[in-house]
């Protein structure tokens, strides 16, 4: 069985799917990615599907599952590089890709993750100020 490589770039894990994945390969990727998120403490995952001719319901479900798993592990997932024909087919197939963030390319995906983390940091700061309550008027 082939395995899809996972690259670490700064605070981001980059997965570029270059093969026509068997279902087993897709499931293995799910598990490998969860382990790498925990091992590296990365807060972002970018899945580049530029090379994929099709996304069927199995791969679509895998993408949704990866997004959910990474969210639980405090990482944001962005799927990038979907081909127009793949997008058209996905919609007609009836796949909604629930909970998946998308961006046109890797660069924009990285910007999206950076913006998301920035936003989260501000939220944390706001939460922190609530820890010491002041007398409410």
């Amino acid at each position: 069985m082939e395995r899809v490589p996972i690259l670490k770039i700064g605070d981001i894990l980059l997965v570029s799917i270059q093969v026509d994945m068997s279902d087993q390969t897709a499931v293995a990727l799910q598990e490998d990615l969860a382990e790498r998120i925990v091992a590296t403490g990365c807060h972002g995952v970018i899945i580049d599907i530029t090379a994929l001719d099709i996304v069927d319901s199995f791969v679509g479900r895998m993408l949704s599952t990866i997004a959910s798993i990474s969210r639980v592990l405090d990482a944001e997932t962005v799927v990038v590089g979907m081909r127009p024909a793949v997008a058209i087919t996905l919609v007609e197939l009836g796949l909604s890709l629930n909970g998946i963030r998308t961006a046109l390319n890797v660069e924009r995906g990285m910007e999206l993750i950076a913006a998301e983390r920035d936003h989260d940091r501000h939220d944390e700061f706001d939460d922190g100020s609530d820890v010491e309550p002041t007398a409410s008027p």
Binding site: D53, I54, D56, S57, A85, I88, T89, L93
Partner: peptide, 13 residues
Amino acid sequence: LVDQTKVVTAASE
């Protein structure tokens, strides 16, 4: 290209 993608996806399912 779109029809190729559709039929390959259907075949995969």
